[in-house]
């Protein structure tokens, strides 16, 4: 199987004094479902950020989707990001855009025709049970609804890799279940690689997964 992520001796830090992830070596196969767990402040989100190039490795080599992220150019990084679906803990929806426009944003960036983007948005809004809210703005929705919009946005352009940072962190059971179903569906039906940073792995999940745990900056695989 192809490796979608290859990390060798990767160290991550925000400044030179404190290393958050120490010499991590791991690989993730294409089409796999991966959980990354760890205590608050253990570096889970930092690791995720490094996978979409927001933080560059201080040491080691990190390759995501065939793109070496150590010394990546702006255009290559943009190219990689266009093929990723990212779900943020704080949703990161564009406030001045309707939720329909938010969902179509990755498609717009990827150069899809407007008609295609609108069809895709309609279909995804149906999936996340928000079709009736298409014209609303993010601030008019609840936290759970906003996260469902963020999920739909991450799936809209059929990415090769979904990176989700505590996607169900503050959500009610209904919204959480909907998010897990969508992630599971993307993985099983579209063979999309999914990496989820979370505190708790849901027991209802019907998919084989890999589990990495971070403790004191060290990553270990849990069987």
């Amino acid at each position: 199987m192809d490796k979608v992520i290859l990390a060798k001796d990767v160290s991550l830090s925000y400044d030179s004094n404190q290393t958050i992830i120490k010499q991590a070596t791991f690989s993730i196969e294409s089409g796999s479902f991966v959980f990354v767990t760890g205590a608050s402040g253990s570096g889970k989100s930092t690791l995720l950020k490094s996978l979409y190039g927001a933080i560059k490795p201080k040491q080691g080599s990190l390759i995501v989707g065939g793109v070496e992220l150590n010394n990546v150019s702006k255009s290559k990084l943009n190219f990689l990001r266009r093929h990723l679906g990212i779900v943020f803990q704080d949703y990161k929806l564009i406030k001045e855009w309707t939720i329909e426009k938010n969902i179509t944003m990755p498609l717009l960036i990827n150069g899809y025709e407007k008609e295609v983007t609108l069809n895709q948005a309609e279909s995804l809004l149906k999936h996340v049970r928000l079709k009736h809210q298409a014209g609303k703005y993010p601030m008019e929705l609840s936290g759970g609804e906003q996260q469902r919009v963020a999920m739909a946005r991450a799936l809209s352009h059929n990415p090769i890799l979904i990176l989700a940072d505590e996607p169900t962190g503050n959500l009610d059971e209904y919204s959480s279940q909907l998010i897990w179903n969508l992630l599971e569906g993307a993985n099983t039906q579209l063979k999309t690689t999914v990496i989820v940073v979370t505190h708790h792995i849901p027991s209802t999940l019907n998919v084989d997964y890999k589990h990495y745990h971070i403790e004191y900056g060290e990553i270990s695989e849990i069987n």
């Binding site: 255009s75 943009n78 990001r81 990723l84 990212i86 990161k92 929806l93 990755p106």
Partner: peptide
């Protein structure tokens, strides 16, 4: 800047 950052996270080039 918030919108520009979010678009950047999804790989939008600077002009877009």
């Amino acid at each position: 800047s918030e919108r520009m950052s979010i678009m950047g996270l999804f790989g939008a080039p600077t002009w877009l």
